[in-house]
Design a protein around this nucleic acid. Structure first.
Lengths: 225, 225
DNA sequence: TAGATTGTTAATCGATTAACAATC
DNA sequence: TAGATTGTTAATCGATTAACAATC
């Protein structure tokens, strides 16, 4: 089903652009803060000022998913917070495993916020003998060899890849062959995604390089201007 | 100085959009791979196929910074690699400190790739008594109280914030008051940036929520289509 | 030279902002 | 009711893609 611009529609709705989706977690964070501070309602204008975006953009973004506000009133904070959570799928629990129990893997395993949002760590795996059986946040690191068996016994939604660079493709392949459909990739390498697999790449070094660029420009502006 | 579209120009050049800048590290990674594999030259077409973007976009992006190619030949891999590195500022060493030596802070401290790109870790700080004096990647974790004195003795370019959520604003303020102009922020909170300070936020939970959204949509597409 | 491929301008596409009728 | 603020359409802006003359 296509609209007049040739854009695919899902059911009755336009396909939501990725730019919009990436803003949802940010709205969610701000609404969470408002809710914590017992603020019951908010207008797009007020929220736009807090967030440093336009009110138009907020209303446009939300209306991809439905009309959550009320003319003359604005938005009910708790309601909108829950709705965005539901859109993001935070109302259903997602089981995760970590592959690669080095520093980063262990740091992620200890991250408390995930569980709060409905993400549950089910297992941690590594190939390194000295790490196997070590306990991290209440879970014993398991031998990577037992991964396949584990996934057969325990359904897993999300695979977290915190393995060294050169092992990323093969580990990703393994996870996908075990039926995992979502990969959260921390290696500085883009994973080729096949149909039916979703991926989020977290390229820390890209972010640091971007920061270096900004700093450079800042310094040269100081000199020139 | 402004061009016909009213866009500010820097010297003779248009201001480079952030979207373009964020793509530079990715070009840099791909060129690094090509260089490692002894590939001496590449055309925008060939590179576009490897990266899954259009050749037009590559040529447009590069031409914000200058003409690095040659008609009929393409781009010299080593030259372009070095040029992009220079644009990103990777040819000058940047001193960094980490504030917050929890799991994430320690993971970052152990990250080997940073040094390779010219980022040098100069210090790690925390308030926790049990962490102070612990050695991480050859550096002793220092008392947060000694931060100010340390920065006076040792010039620092980049401050890495891996402290708990609620301490982020005050620590950021402290770093800025000590003269640090670039912050790499890992807390799930946007830092308000004042004039003359540059920030990169790494919101891990935002990325995970985006992944959850994609997974949801994937599953509902499976059912509907 | 002929073929290849850039740098750059023009055309298209998509995303953001503005405006306002609808309505709480 | 009058004022406020949404949902939505229209206008603008910016980013991407296409096209091609320049030239190696």
């Amino acid at each position: 089903m296509y609209n007049s611009n040739g854009v695919r529609r899902l059911g009755n709705k336009r396909k939501v652009p990725l730019t919009v989706i990436k803003r949802l977690p940010r709205y969610y964070r701000y609404l969470s803060e408002l809710f914590k501070n017992d603020i019951g309602r908010i207008s797009s204008k007020e929220l736009s000022q807090r967030m440093g975006v336009t009110a138009s953009q907020i209303r446009q973004d939300l209306n991809f998913f439905g009309g959550f506000g009320q003319q003359g009133y604005g938005y009910n904070v708790e309601y909108l917070y829950n709705e965005i959570g539901a859109i993001l799928g935070l109302n259903k629990t997602r089981k995760m495993i970590i592959v690669g129990a080095g520093n980063l893997g262990q740091a992620l395993a200890n991250y408390k916020n995930f569980r709060k949002r409905g993400f549950e760590l089910a297992g941690i795996f590594d190939v390194r003998e000295d790490l196997i059986d070590k306990e991290v946040n209440g879970l014993k690191i398991q031998d990577f060899k037992s991964l396949e068996g584990f996934i057969k016994e325990n359904p897993v939604d999300i695979g977290i890849l915190s393995v060294p660079h050169d092992q990323t493709p093969s580990v990703a392949e393994k996870l996908v062959s075990c039926g995992i459909k979502a990969l959260w990739n921390f290696s500085p390498m883009d994973l080729k995604l096949r149909q039916g697999i979703v991926i989020e790449n977290v390229h820390l070094s890209d972010s640091l390089m971007t920061l270096a660029y900004k700093l450079n420009r800042l310094e040269s502006d100081d000199i020139n201007c």
